[in-house]
């Protein structure tokens, strides 16, 4: 749902999104050590694979974004990871837009990275239920951030979209709830089973 296809947004929004995404990519790549590429790629792949599974919600089903979790695990490196994921989706499965790639990267990665970085600093010393709550909160807010970015991109593109935005926004609420619960459990699981996954960036000094 967060993937805006080609043909919906206006040119200035597409260009603005692409510029922001390029900035984010530059930032993410600078923090990505060359020797760290295999590790980042493997983790990015897992998020990609996990988001392919459909979660039943009532009569319909949704796919997870996992952007909050990505931000927590990968930090700013989530931006190139999301970019690569979207590009692979376009090629392997044939969906997603090309001109809207920049906007989609911003919509999905930016809220996740910002909340992930906040969540990481809170996660130090937290355990069990606390860690789950922090992870869940970050995930829910990331999805809401994504909904906000998608709405903003649509609103800036054309005033005609404005009345539809409320309903577009509403479709994100179940996703936010499901993401919060799943991410909360994942973070609690990782704290218990393999905290090194969450401490990925500590080795290299302060996360961004």
């Amino acid at each position: 749902m967060a993937h805006i296809p080609d043909g919906v947004l206006s040119a200035p929004v597409l260009i603005g999104g692409a510029a922001l995404a390029l900035g984010g990519l530059a930032l993410g790549l600078r923090r990505l050590d060359e020797a760290d590429i295999p590790k980042t790629a493997i983790l990015a792949t897992v998020f990609f694979v996990a988001s392919l599974f459909a979660v039943p919600v009532g009569p319909s089903s949704i796919h997870l974004l996992l952007s909050g979790l990505m931000g927590i695990v990968l930090g700013t490196r989530a931006i190139p990871a999301v970019f690569v994921g979207l590009l692979l989706q376009a090629v392997l499965f044939g969906f997603g837009g090309l001109t809207s790639l920049g906007v989609d990267v911003v919509d999905i990665a930016f809220p996740g990275v910002i909340l992930g970085v906040v969540a990481r600093s809170l996660l130090r010393g937290a355990s069990g239920a606390g860690a789950a709550a922090i992870g869940g909160g970050a995930a829910a807010l990331s999805v809401i951030g994504t909904a906000g970015c998608v709405s903003l991109a649509l609103a800036l593109s054309s005033a005609d979209y404005l009345p539809s935005l409320k309903i577009v926004g509403l479709t994100y609420l179940p996703l936010a709830a499901v993401e919060a619960i799943v991410t909360g459990f994942v973070v609690a699981f990782l704290v218990r089973v393999k905290p090194e996954v969450l401490a990925l960036e500590d080795r290299e000094g302060e996360p961004a």
Partner: peptide
Amino acid sequence: TLRTLAHFTGQLLVRAFERAE
């Protein structure tokens, strides 16, 4: 279902992390 999916994702991440090392 959600908890199972979370453990599924977590397990996938742990395995991936170990493989990455």
